[in-house]
Amino acid sequence: MNSASLWFIFIDSLLINNFVLAVFLGICPFLGVSGKLDTASRMGAAVVFVMLVSSALTYGINLLLVHLDAEYLRIISYIVVIASTVQLVEMFIKKKSPALFRALGIYLPLITTNCAVLGVAMFQTIRDYNFVQSIVFSLGAGLGFTLALVIMSGIREQLNLSDVPNAAKGTAVALMVAGILSMAFMGFAGLGSN
């Protein structure tokens, strides 16, 4: 059992060990869909939602696997759970709220290959979080992902208007910006001494 307080877990996953900028999870969507502020916030919302659901489910799956003494099936069952969660969430949203479904659109299926979701599941298992801690952790991680994505997209919208050398256009300059952002987030490290 991990004894970290809920508030600490939340701040830790949101700011100090931000999933994108400090742990390097979910870089692909971070670079891929951070072109526009609007799409970035929608993608973030979808990720938060899937992370919460899959975190709760993988917690249960892990208990079952430990009970059956079959931990070697962990990676396989986690990825299957996440993939089917994404499918279920997609179907559920489509039925319940067509407006939200249209808004999220293509971003929902893309989440399956977002390593941040599997990352949350692996971290909560390694760190031995209990159920409430896992939920808080996944919420913090999801919001941290959204925060990084939204900040990045705001910067990139400005970047489009500025004069960038031809060779640096695209991914190279985006990575440089991400580096500076990550340096800024290092400032939160002081919050970690609880």
Partner: peptide
């Protein structure tokens, strides 16, 4: 030390990509 920290990873990869696109150009 910055190169061992996360931001150093971003900078290094950015620099490599920049070098490759300069060669290509």
């Amino acid at each position: 030390v910055i190169f061992l920290l996360p931001s150093g990873g971003f900078f290094t990869l950015g620099a490599w990509l920049l070098a490759f696109s300069l060669i290509k150009e």
